[in-house]
Write a protein that binds this DNA or RNA. Structure first.
Lengths: 189, 189, 189, 189
DNA sequence: CATGAATGAGATTTCATTCAT
DNA sequence: GATGAATGAAATCTCATTCAT
């Protein structure tokens, strides 16, 4: 499965045949893959749920103990970028499969990934930390800005991820903050 | 070529075989596609350049006569969303091909699409309309938020594009505006 | 037809498609070929008979007025090599078609080409100029040695055809001459 | 591979598609051929080297212990004809591939087949057994006369190979022997 | 004479999958 | 767990041929 993830991440969904996965895994036959997984869809589904579980666990760890919604949003952005740095192929493979695999895409996706973000945004609005905005649109903007990163890195490999994270945090702080809140500029927190 | 664009947009790059394109075009054989295009890569390249030309023309039309960078940014967002409404398959096919086709991806892409956006952002910073930020990151965030739209629509077909446009405009107005500028809120313009 | 001959000679029977022939002829469609010839076999048959006619005419010209069989044999060898020098593609195309086209191969071949040679050999034996040998085998040896030339030239483009001709003439003079005949060495003729 | 050799020998290079080879091999799909060989060129290359190896081994066996060049030449002719009798398809396939496959044709060919013959001829000239002649031309004549045999058989299936061998041996004995050598006629060997 | 659209057959090749070993 | 033979489907591409213009 590790080889499958890496192959999908490197070559893309369309090129990730059993033959190429087996090659990367050091296997001389694709038979073993078919033996362990019920089919290509099964393999894809297992990869998706594996990566989503791993990602979900990571996000919960990183966001534990957060007390305010703006901190949670910043933490979300930084945690996801940090995850990319350590498990970049996982996310690229996930994106490939969610986009192009004929996956169910049902509960798993929304529940684990994006709706966690929507929850944060809603929380911020309810506690008066965030201005009113459409939660779905804002969540999509954050999510897209984050998962566009691998693409950006392909075009510009020297990209500094820390700078990218800082910029995105500031971008969405300004986009979400309530109008009168000059807090950050005053350095109060 | 129209059939090819629609097929790629609907079924995705991986599923858009010559057979399916021919079927949609009402052809009884895939031979004619190979007859008109030198190969699959040629077809893809011609689609990309066709769509980029069309898109570039549209954007220039819509942004003609704009005098300030913030207006240009708003216009860029609204023009691209409007383009999606009229030529949705074009953009979806373009995204598929740029992401998964082994395309050259060279001058054409950056020049026509994203770097137009970067030019706007730089212009705004130089004229004092925009605060300092990393132009590349901001451009990527805008672009990703925009081309994530088709995906959003797939999950939520009832999505109101005008609302989406308004929200994005406001989001990135706040994200780019210079700190002291309370102008908009005062309703002066 | 000239383009067809050249294409077959240069690329070989298997690669000589209508498309490539049309290309060489400066045509933009293969339709015209199908219009002028009833089919691929028809084109092949017409090429074969055309080349055989041309070759037959040439050989008759060159061998006219010969009075002895040994002179005829030498003339045959030299005339065929000379023909190769001026109409090399004709012979190469002919060989390709006779070998690989599903041609009839009936009367035309034997009559015009080889059996002319066999006639010479039989004539020499009847007039006592040639020793007894199997006419078929000797004719095959001469013919093969001759039409192997293009192959030899491909491997060694600097080959001197005059030397080749001299060597073959001498080779087959010795192979055919009656035992006691020391005439040539004595320079009497 | 056996089926491939037979198919090429029987139908010729142009007609020997994977489908026909698979059919002869009793396979229900051509996929297996692509599975075992990297491509059509690979299959061809492997056939060529296999046949050349086999032929080379045979010729070395047959020519072992020969002490004079004229014996070697006679042995060469008889051994090759004998090989044709037992492994006719091998040689026909080899000829097809060397003529029409876009093969490398490099070392393997010359080394194993023809240049063995040239070595014999040179040896004979150095030891005074053979008259002076162009070794390349003579070798080509011998070789062509030999591999023209299958063609001859196609036109005349009743051909007696022993007679053919005898005739060729005598033909090239006379063509190569030094002028004064009356040895054979005296029956000394 | 010439073009270009169109077609059906067939070629090579890749793929997922099954199965015996 | 692992291999390799085998298969049928599908993909890209080429080809000869037809036909309307």
């Amino acid at each position: 499965m590790r080889s499958a993830i890496e192959t999908i991440a490197d070559l893309g969904y369309a090129q990730a045949s059993f033959a190429r996965i087996a090659e990367r895994a050091g296997l001389k036959s694709t038979g073993l893959i078919s033996y362990h997984f019920a089919g290509k869809q099964d393999l894809q589904a297992e990869i998706v749920s594996f990566v989503l579980d791993d990602l979900s666990r990571w996000m919960h760890e990183q966001l534990a103990g957060v007390e305010r919604a703006d901190q949670a949003l910043e933490g979300y952005i930084r945690a996801l970028i940090a995850y990319m740095q350590t498990r970049s192929p996982h996310l690229r493979a996930l994106a490939e499969l969610l986009l192009h695999g004929g996956m169910s895409w049902d509960a798993s996706d929304q529940a684990s990934a994006t709706s966690g973000l929507e929850d944060i945004l809603r929380w911020g609005q309810e506690t008066g930390t965030f201005r009113p905005f459409d939660v779905g649109v804002m969540a999509a903007a954050v999510q897209r800005s984050l998962d566009g990163l691998p693409l950006l890195q392909k075009g510009n490999p020297a990209l500094d991820l820390d700078v990218y994270a800082d910029e995105l945090v500031e971008l969405f702080r300004r986009a979400t903050v309530v109008d009168g809140s000059a807090a950050k500029e005053d350095g109060k927190w």
